[in-house]
């Protein structure tokens, strides 16, 4: 490597030549339209302008029904407006309530309990669905594999390596649960026969 070939990072000034602003303007629609950093919409990060938000209250009227609703213990109270979709219920609800009441968002236990609550919620729902005309399946939308080029779309892609894991990750717990159910049923039948 001669001295002239030494890359920019090792010398004082840039050695590579970039396109000129005129060339960029000719090639890219709108090049430089937001060139001035002070004239960009999110500058400055904190811009005190409460009159522009549309709020016509200093503190919002409180939504009814906050009694007993879960909240992060990092909040002073249940926020004046809150979501009411899927309220806490059953065993998963008890786990989630424990996560909210006992641990702040800064504690890993808070999040791990919520993850456990999610899995309990999901498996409880799957079991209940088997008593309906619309039982859950391990994965939905699989028809698209045939209608939207499942095989051809993946050809040569680097992520195909872990796509083969999807059936294991998604279907594995179902196979395991089915196995446990079959073994349990057999043992129960054997016990009844005795």
């Amino acid at each position: 490597m001669t001295e002239n070939d030494i890359p920019t990072a090792y010398v004082r000034d840039k050695r590579t030549v970039r396109e000129t602003n005129e060339q960029l303007r000719a090639r890219i629609p709108g090049w430089g339209a937001d060139l001035d950093p002070a004239d960009r919409p999110s500058h400055p990060k904190l811009r005190y302008a409460p009159e522009t938000t549309g709020a016509h209250w200093e503190f919002p009227e409180r939504q009814p029904g906050s009694e007993g609703r879960e909240r992060s213990i990092e909040h002073a109270f249940v926020t004046p407006v809150f979501g009411t979709a899927q309220p806490l219920t059953g065993a998963s609800g008890a786990i989630r309530r424990l996560a909210y009441e006992r641990f702040s968002e800064g504690r890993l236990a808070h999040w791990m309990l919520l993850v456990v609550g999610d899995r309990v919620d999901a498996w409880g729902s799957h079991l209940r669905s088997f008593a309906t005309l619309r039982p859950d399946v391990p994965a939905t939308g699989m028809r698209a594999e045939f209608t939207h080029g499942g095989l051809s779309s993946r050809r040569g892609r680097v992520d195909a390596r872990h796509h083969v894991l999807d059936p294991v990750v998604v279907g594995g717990p179902w196979v395991l649960a089915a196995g446990v159910a079959v073994v349990g049923a057999r043992r129960l039948a054997r016990a009844v026969r005795r």
Partner: peptide, 19 residues
């Protein structure tokens, strides 16, 4: 937060988390 333009960080709408 909203008064200062941080609309995605509102403190009055998410009882479940402050982050």
């Amino acid at each position: 937060f909203c008064a200062r333009g941080l609309y995605s960080n509102c403190h009055n709408v998410n009882a479940n988390a402050t982050a």
